[in-house]
Design a protein around this nucleic acid. Structure first.
Lengths: 241, 241
DNA sequence: CGAACGTTTGAGATGACTCAAGCGTTGTGG
DNA sequence: CCACAACGCTTGAGTCATCTCAAACGTTCG
């Protein structure tokens, strides 16, 4: 039941009941973490992976001046660092953005489950590759879009991801992030992010107050952000644009 | 012998002789491809993966105006799209930048080899995760560095990757790319890339003429580009900064 | 020799940044 | 229950990095 959301609605790799309960059994611990806490520091050796049950977690790279670049965020129902299983150590740090609940999965338990089950291993492999696809979409966002487009794209992506795990109805969702968080995600300053939000609001595309996001015109928002959900590898959800 | 360079000098996942020859046997075909050819279009269904023997191959996402964002480049000794094995279809396109030689590996052959060999499967999984780590470094580059820094970072990365497969001596390497290619990689215009190259040249950090890159001051270049090679998961090569 | 391509330089436009300050909301302690 | 601190949001004005448009120059190759 902890893993109900894992790979939910992902094209072709939904887990069987047996697979789900096997993975469930590999969980060693459930933890609560406060907002804005570092969970793993870049370069650390890790022997467990983290599955996110509640809240938003970020992955980021620090530059030498202490500024950081977010390279991923995770929503409930996703492994945050399953890639640590083959990699052993990480090239980035991990921290909470909001308060969060996580499940800890030791790699030894994972190995016992996966070694005799190539099909399941391939599904987990797939799930780490979705993260890579998200990285690519983020690259596109930062490299090709202007400030308004980046925010539009990010909101479309987040809406689609949350919808897949039933945390958005397609038009409205709670997102515990501040405008500064979104600025960091989109590679912008807080000030400029705020101005871009105003433009989106005035154009009637979307609205964010107190971390509740309301998407007024989903299609127009997707157009403004040049958003094509293909890279999320979702199944055919009824309202996915 | 085709696969000699694959995972060469990668921390902890070097292939055994047996593994190498098994993969070697999975190759169905060797092909030559001209410069600037599309190999795979985004969204296509694929049942083979591509291993790069010679040349430079890019992966890119098109925006709706026909401009493209490069999300990865590959050098000899790397799988270009091993992730197509678990994913089946790709969220980006693939094309050559220079003339190239590639080896084709059908997924069916891969499955036969990997299903009974979880250890080898984990090494291939790892190799796709290095691509993800490269994506993250690219995000850092585009999100946090200025024009000169981005180019410096890219040159440091490329130097290190080519060194791992013995195509750079650490200070000099042939790179069949134009300044426009590097502009696309770094999310800059050609004009501005040219000006940034001049700055690097005048500062005595590096030099690029006719696609031969010469790194004059490796440490200073790494500092300028805020480059830390940790994310490449290389073994301890003698001169890696 | 000429066409195609890549590199280099100039001048002006613009999107995003920096610095600075005011405003609104929330939570807390006296 | 009020006052104040902390935090996030909003706005303004001036600056700067990068972009756009334009043109000249050098190589390579047929």
């Amino acid at each position: 039941m902890f893993l109900d959301r894992f790979l939910a609605n992902r094209r072709g790799v939904e887990l069987t009941l047996e697979e789900r309960s096997l993975l469930e059994g590999a969980i060693s611990e459930i933890q609560s973490v406060n907002s804005r806490q570092t969970i793993i520091e870049a370069g650390e050796n890790v022997s467990v992976s983290t599955f996110l049950l509640e809240g938003i977690i970020s992955r980021y790279i620090d530059d030498k001046k202490g500024l950081r670049q977010l390279v991923a965020i995770h929503v409930p129902g996703e492994f945050v660092d399953l890639h640590a299983y083959p990699m052993r150590e990480l090239d980035h740090s991990i921290g909470t953005l909001t308060a969060a609940t996580i499940a800890i999965v030791p790699h030894s338990a994972l190995k016992d489950i996966l070694d005799p089950r190539p099909e399941l291993a391939r599904k987990l492999w797939f799930s780490t590759l979705i993260d890579a696809a998200l990285h690519r979409a983020w690259l596109f966002r930062v490299g090709r879009l202007d400030a308004v487009g980046r925010i539009a794209h990010f909101l479309c992506e987040t809406n689609a991801r949350l919808e897949a795990v039933k945390l958005s109805n397609g038009h409205r969702f709670a997102l515990g992030l501040t405008q500064s968080d979104i600025a960091e995600i989109c590679g912008l300053t807080t000030v400029h992010t705020n101005r871009a939000f105003r433009q989106l609001r005035e154009a009637g595309l979307c609205n964010m107050r107190a971390s509740l996001v309301e998407i007024c015109d989903r299609e127009a928002l997707a157009r403004r952000g040049d958003f094509d959900p293909h890279y999320l590898y979702l199944g055919q959800s009824p309202s996915t644009q």
